[in-house]
Simulated assay, not measured.
Amino acid sequence: MPHETNSKIILITGINGYIASHIGVQFLRKGYTVRGTSRSLSARDHLLSGAFKGYEPFYQHVVVPDITAPGAFDEAVRAVHHIIHTASPVDFTLTSVDAFFGPAIGGNLSILNSARIHAGPQLESFVVTSSVAAVVDRWKNAPDHDYTEADWNTTGESVARETFTAPVAYGASKAAAERALWDWVSANKPSWSVAAINPAVVTGPPVSFPATPDKLNETLLPIWRIYANELPNGGAMPPQIGGAGYIDVRDVARMHVWAAEHHALSNGQRYLLANGKAPPQAVADILREKFPERDIIVGEPGKGYTPDYDFVKGESSLVSTKALAALGIERFIGFEQSVLDTVKAFEAKWPGVAKNLKQ
């Protein structure tokens, strides 16, 4: 139950998502009422029987079947004090740039317009979950570029339109969606603050779980596959995601909460969140050491990362000093803790499902 009391209502879109459910837990613990949206009502029961159990009086749910539809969020935004917009489908089976761009841009514009017309004068902040993919432009910048919030992915769209790949199209769509957000702000000059959170690859223990491990999201599934030795493609190491920058989900959620609560400071700002570089090889190395009784892929130990999981000298880095200063901390949750806490959560949820114990 909440440790504090607070009369304010927080709207979190895509509430059943990995990051969003963490944000919901943090706000509920602070005494807020959380209103979540999802595409179907089943998400409500799933959360109230799991991550949000015990917070039933402080949770509301609105079904939004299509986030890009005009007026989709009209009811959801009414009387809320803060909006956290995390809903943006990640589907790497899509086969065109426009298929990525439509939901990403349309979802942002749909909820912004609903908020402008229907939220009410009590609305204080709008925080959107963007991505490091909206920041990094490896085609334009030097290989050792130090990326900050001033950087934008401006080349990804043309690259994806010339030679389509889903990851490049996804990154371009995140940049386009965030650009659309800031263009909307310039044109409409809302009375409430607007901020964007740009996390790297997100790891860390989920608070809401799918029915089975194979349904885990794109960033957690590789950790499960390495831990359980359920590797596709002939047992190969999972591919690196982007530049392998990482950040723990609890820090990502904390940044969203801070941006909403400190809206006078966060207004108009982007916050890049990354704690270093850690490719799948680093996951395998950590888990082989901690679980010697399990058969875990060896790969090429130590390759592609530093012992402290910081950025590699001579390669690009992601500078998070702005976010660290805002949160008043020196460092985010470390990678080893993030991975081990994730596996601990897996084992608590699915004990004995990983069958790779050595004979």
Score class of each variant (00 low, 15 high):
Y18C: 07
Y18L: 08
I19D: 09
I19T: 14
I19Q: 07
I19S: 09
I19C: 10
I19M: 11
S21W: 07
H22N: 12
I23T: 11
I23Y: 04
G24L: 07
G24D: 06
V25G: 04
Q26S: 05
F27I: 05
L28Q: 01
R29G: 15
K30C: 12
Y32H: 03
V34I: 13
V34L: 09
V34K: 06
S38H: 08
S38E: 08
S40T: 14
L41W: 00
L41T: 00
S42W: 11
A43P: 06
R44P: 02
R44F: 12
D45W: 00
L47F: 05
L48S: 02
S49P: 08
S49Q: 14
A51S: 05
K53N: 08
G54T: 03
G54M: 02
G54Y: 03
Y55S: 07
Y55K: 05
E56N: 06
P57F: 02
P57L: 04
F58R: 12
F58A: 13
Y59G: 07
Y59F: 14
Q60S: 06
Q60G: 01
H61I: 15
V62W: 09
V64Y: 08
P65K: 14
T68L: 11
A69V: 13
A69Y: 10
P70E: 11
P70S: 11
D74I: 10
A76R: 04
A76Y: 03
V77L: 03
V77Q: 03
A79S: 15
A79T: 15
A79W: 15
V80Q: 04
H82Q: 09
H82E: 08
H82Y: 13
H82L: 09
I83G: 04
I83W: 03
H85A: 13
T86E: 11
A87V: 06
A87W: 03
P89M: 13
P89S: 14
P89I: 15
V90R: 02
D91N: 14
F92K: 05
F92T: 08
F92A: 09
T93N: 13
L94Y: 14
V97M: 13
V97N: 08
A99W: 09
A99S: 13
A99D: 13
F100D: 03
F100H: 05
F101G: 00
F101C: 00
G102P: 00
G102T: 10
P103G: 02
P103I: 05
A104W: 00
A104C: 00
G106V: 06
G107A: 00
N108C: 10
L109K: 04
I111G: 01
I111Q: 01
L112H: 09
L112A: 08
L112M: 12
S114K: 00
A115G: 01
R116A: 15
G120N: 05
G120Q: 05
P121A: 15
P121T: 15
L123S: 03
E124L: 11
